[in-house]
Simulated assay, not measured.
Amino acid sequence: MLDKHSQEANNYNVYRTGFLSWIRINQILKRLFSDQPPGFFLEAGALDGEFISNTLHLERELGWTGLLIEADPVLYAALPDKHRRSWSSQSCISPNSYAEVRTFESYRPKNQTDFANELLIRSTGNLEGVMAPAAGRMGLKATYSVQCFPLLSYLLTLNKRDVQYISLDVEGAEADILLTLPWDRVNITVWTIEHRSQNTRFKDHYLEPGGIAVRSVVKQDDVSSPGGDRPSSNKIQKMVYVTQHDPAAGKDDYFVLFMKEKGYRLYDYWDGDYTFIKADSTICRTHLELILVVEVVPVEVVMEVPLDELGVVVEIISVVEVVPVLVVLPEVLVVPFVEVLPIFVVDDIGVVVPLVELMPLVGVVAV
């Protein structure tokens, strides 16, 4: 119903102007990918292939293709009519490292309602036993048996280990999918992931026996905007589906730490939606500022000491103090009398990582 004009179409398309989380993600994807060649995506939680789709713009406007995964049989039945130029599968991503048949809990409205609200309620369907955000509070439940496969299995089937974008919104199973993913066998550039901090799977991963002990996780401020056109979190208010809360709050620092360890930087957080970019990618270098910490020790300046005819020192300069300097690309740093300069990168949780071991500098350094 993207280009149709009728009362039903207007009701269906209300998400395009009224669903602020979808609008924000759509703006981010346009910013990241508009100047990139066509890529491959995977969208898990694809619904009917159009309603609040995170990948439709990539396919329709930028020439991408990909894989659409939807577990709800009612929603998936409507997908062929959308004429998407992508693979599709009526199945689910397994929260385990093996294929399995699981029970899928679908929801329909308790009372007669409009088309968009019905789709919204159906979009909260979840696998039985997971900590779903809506927790079945939005409609009447119906259950189905659904075949689930590990995320890697889908990619191997299509011979696609290099994926430019994955949208993972499967109502509570995201953490287990990521925890069981063999990260060394895939190369994903950008992720959009729904995750609520009430789901403690990432915290448990670090604190439980056998996990990695973590004494503390550095609390991060909201991610600074790398682009001037990003929506401002203090200017947008939103009525959420079940309750009201601050959409800029609730970031799970254990989740951010987990993704950082997998090689990703947090680009955006809003209302439970995280966008991560692979740190060594061109997109990351383009859209996330690289902060350099330049650490310089005091340098002794050796000068010829002038003496008068009686052997008295006329003037002496012994030591020049050079203080550490914080530089944000692409500025130019002037460092007088410095011969060797170590350079370090500070990542998104404050850990100092060597960028280059040693760099000889004389006079002016362009960074």
Rank of each mutant, 00 (worst) to 15 (best):
V334I: 06
K219G: 00
N126E: 14
S167N: 14
R230I: 09
Q112S: 14
D348Q: 15
I52L: 04
K235Y: 10
L32S: 05
F115P: 01
S233F: 15
N54E: 00
S91G: 01
A173V: 02
E100F: 01
V351H: 12
R16A: 13
D347Y: 10
D273E: 08
S88N: 07
W64R: 02
M131Q: 13
P209E: 10
V332W: 00
V312W: 02
V294H: 01
W191S: 06
A99P: 05
V130F: 11
L288I: 14
F40S: 01
R285I: 00
F19P: 00
P73Q: 02
L42H: 07
L68N: 12
R215H: 09
T113S: 10
Y254A: 11
K141G: 05
N111W: 08
E100Y: 00
L358Y: 12
G63P: 04
L179H: 02
K235W: 12
L179K: 01
D271L: 00
T103W: 01
W270F: 15
L140A: 14
V340E: 15
E315T: 12
A9K: 14
L168W: 07
N26P: 00
L307Q: 12
F51C: 06
L358D: 13
H57M: 15
S216V: 04
V305K: 12
R137L: 13
F33P: 07
E8Y: 08
I317T: 10
A249Y: 03
K260D: 03
W183S: 11
V130R: 14
E174V: 00
T124F: 06
L288V: 07
L156S: 11
P38L: 03
W64F: 03
L68R: 07
V101K: 13
V345R: 13
P247H: 01
C148V: 03
P330F: 06
K278I: 03
P324Q: 11
I212Q: 06
T103A: 00
G66P: 09
P182D: 08
S6Q: 11
E321W: 06
K4I: 07
L310W: 10
P330T: 14
I277S: 02
C148E: 07
P298G: 06
